[in-house]
Design a protein around this nucleic acid. Structure first.
Length: 208
DNA sequence: ACGAGGATGCTCT
DNA sequence: GAGCATCCTCGTG
């Protein structure tokens, strides 16, 4: 049903990877607890020259000082590694680094449909009543799947957190403006499964 | 149904 | 101090 993905998959532009990760399965092996997994139904791309990307300010600095470092430096690194950071002081957000080393890029994983170890999703999100809401947001899915900075900067091709490609994909992919940002809202770089009940309820940032 | 506001911590704009 | 790739609860209608 699903097969391994090689590192060259991630060495491409973030928007290409964002679209192709839709329908793939995110799997996490937890010591003691077991394996937990879900189908990716929503992603966002962040790229070089993108004011909403965490690498943006560092990219400006590097125009005059190529040695400059700071927040988002991981996005310039080799593709296929996780980039996990704490948002609003409360939620870990999961990204995969894309593009060749030297070019910043990442894909944010925003929502999954539970598939493997669904009982663990429920246990990690005790107040949730509907299956659709277990992981329909970037902060929700990391809580539901027990993902935090212990998984930061690990390979998604052979580590405990990885993606697997479906043999065939029978879904339609739609795009919109990205959610929860104020810059770069003109770029339709949010990708999701058209009609899925498992995508996040957040409004794209160019609406209302 | 929808909007406002609070929790919480890291980086630097 | 401001700003953030969020989520939940509580108010109102």
């Amino acid at each position: 049903m699903f097969s391994d993905i090689s590192i060259s998959f991630y060495s491409r532009p973030a928007l290409v990877v964002a679209k192709e990760l839709i329908g793939c399965r995110l799997v996490v092996d937890h010591p003691r607890i077991g394996t937990i997994g879900g189908i990716v139904v929503e992603t966002e791309a962040y790229t070089s020259g993108d004011p909403a990307c965490h690498a943006w300010h560092l990219e400006q600095k590097r125009k005059t000082n190529p040695e400059a470092t700071g927040k988002g430096v991981e996005l310039f690194g080799p593709p296929g590694l996780t980039y996990i950071y704490l948002n609003y002081g409360m939620y870990w957000l999961l990204n995969v680094v894309t593009d060749p080393e030297g070019t910043p890029g990442a894909v944010l994983i925003r929502a999954v449909e539970p598939e493997i170890g669904e009982d663990i999703f429920w246990k990690n999100r005790p107040r949730i009543k509907n299956r659709e809401q277990l992981a329909n947001g970037p902060g929700k899915l990391t809580v539901a799947m027990g993902i935090d900075d212990r998984y930061h900067q690990l390979s998604v091709t052979d580590g405990p957190l990885r993606f697997e490609k479906p043999r065939q994909r029978r879904i339609q992919i739609a795009t919109s403006s990205r959610i929860g940002i104020t810059k770069g809202i003109d770029r339709p770089w949010r990708c999701f499964v058209k009609g899925s009940d498992y995508v996040s309820p957040g409004l794209p940032s160019d609406r209302k």
